[in-house]
Design a protein around this nucleic acid. Structure first.
Lengths: 188, 188
DNA sequence: GATAAAATACCGAGATTGGGGGATCTGTTA
DNA sequence: TAACAGATCCCCCAATCTCGGTATTTTATC
């Protein structure tokens, strides 16, 4: 399909990424279209290796997988696009042109998952009171109990009481663990 | 431009979002195209209000701003697309159809910024040694000095020494602050 | 082989934190 | 009115952390 496009030059086509390092020493490309499910090493690891050697090559994933794990792993590894075989195969030529112009072609469902990642609302599952969340925010900023007491205009003892309850509710037993949980789970 | 599309029905066109709540009680839409720079309240706040009342309406930002702050703020507020006026105005009709099919239309540069957010490599700017980063990872997991000492098979005193240096390098003065910094800046 | 950097370990003092109680006050709600 | 949750404060005390030193051993590098 790509060979029929007048502005493309297809310089290779491989069933696995095992030889990727060797191939890159012999040939050069502007864009690589990468599958994920391949024998030997998977496409995500292959992306990592390509970007290690040739950071300027743009890589578009073309796969059947649409789970968030592989999606995010691909982008973390250095992919610049992510297309689902079933829906976006027909748009591959257009997507290749897009990526060369500095874009990041994505299937509609993929793009939605990307933005959904930002729309995660602060969870309520631990039943923290509003005051407790307030105290917790100061803790996340690195405030000591004393500084929190000052900021909240309450005694240091009250800060302790609040945080004791917070730790119980979050099932943690120290400040660092609480801060880590808050930041990882976007609690505040 | 949109009115000339046979499959669209333009039901309104406003210079500000001040009356957005009132408008939503009188009219219903599938898609809203939203500017950011408006008198009264800005488009990002307007997105929040629309999604509050009508979560199912898809909102596409159409703006001249391409800074990451407003970009991410828009998606966090609930936008489903982000187009830059200069480059993607011509694609607006196509983007509206895209968003109604469950997509998330983005200008090329915008999409790249989205994925760049995932590709941030662990920073090296603080000059932490590899051992120090290792200790720090355990701290982020909520380990106490004693537990870290056990995991790393070194004495608790050495853990203290390492973390003293880490705090100096990160310009923080307690564990919670260090953990917060690590997680926010993706240091490990 | 010299040098520097990193990793290891120790001492000590003072501050902070974490967990166990209990108590008062203020709303809200049944 | 009684019951209850939330916010406030207090005491005690053990454990932990933070910071100031110093010192030895490994490892890397020139």
């Amino acid at each position: 399909m790509l060979e029929s496009e007048p502005d493309f030059l297809v310089i290779g086509d491989y069933g696995s990424a095992l030889e990727i390092e060797t191939i890159l020493t012999q040939k050069d490309a502007d864009v690589i279209v990468m599958d994920i499910d391949m024998p030997g090493i998977n496409g995500i690891e292959a992306v990592r290796r390509v970007k290690e050697i040739r950071p300027l090559i743009d890589i578009i994933m073309l796969t059947v997988f649409e789970d968030t794990e592989r999606l995010f792993a691909s982008f973390c590894a250095g992919a610049s696009g992510y297309l689902l075989k079933m829906h976006s195969l027909a748009k591959l030529p257009e997507s290749i042109r897009d990526v060369m112009l500095g874009g990041a072609p994505m299937s509609p469902a993929v793009a939605r998952k990307m933005i959904a990642h930002f729309q995660q609302v602060p969870q309520e599952k631990y039943g923290l009171s509003s005051r407790e969340k307030e105290i917790l925010q100061w803790l996340v900023k690195g405030y000591s109990y004393k500084m929190i007491a000052g900021s909240a205009s309450i005694s240091q003892e009250t800060v302790k009481t609040h945080l004791k309850k917070v730790y119980k509710k979050l099932h943690v037993n120290c400040a660092t663990e609480a801060v880590a949980k808050v930041l990882k789970e976007r609690l505040v």
